[in-house]
């Protein structure tokens, strides 16, 4: 008597989930162009945050900020009307409002 077992059912081949809806595409440069004139948070490698309006920046990531607040451990420690931040100290630039 032929008692060969039937082949196992094929593995569940559900299609891969669709990629998440992308709300924004573009290169890092596009991001930086988009945030000029907007409120940003600049974090330095030391952990200090600078919140202000991004006036401009250059290829070294030197940054000019307006209406800047310096935050250390969540507390405001200084305010500057204008501030130049030397680019080598920058860890990241975060958009603080919609681009």
């Amino acid at each position: 008597m032929d008692d060969t077992t039937p082949p196992p059912p094929p593995a569940d081949q559900s299609p891969p989930p669709p990629p998440p809806v992308q709300t924004h595409t573009g290169s890092p440069t596009d991001f930086l162009k988009g945030v000029v004139g907007k409120r940003v948070i600049v974090r330095l490698t030391s952990g200090v945050d600078y919140c202000g309006v991004l006036s401009c920046l250059d290829g070294y990531m030197n940054i000019a900020l307006e209406q800047t607040e310096e935050h250390v451990n969540g507390a405001v420690t200084n305010r500057y009307g204008d501030a130049f931040i030397r680019g080598n100290n920058v860890l990241y630039i975060s958009a603080a409002e919609a681009i």
């Binding site: 330095l44 030391s46 500057y80 009307g81 501030a83 130049f84 931040i85």
Partner: peptide, 14 residues
């Protein structure tokens, strides 16, 4: 020397 500089702030122009 420039590498020691973190931030420069001019006098407030108000």
């Amino acid at each position: 020397r420039g590498d020691g500089v973190i931030l420069v702030s001019p006098p407030s122009r108000t």
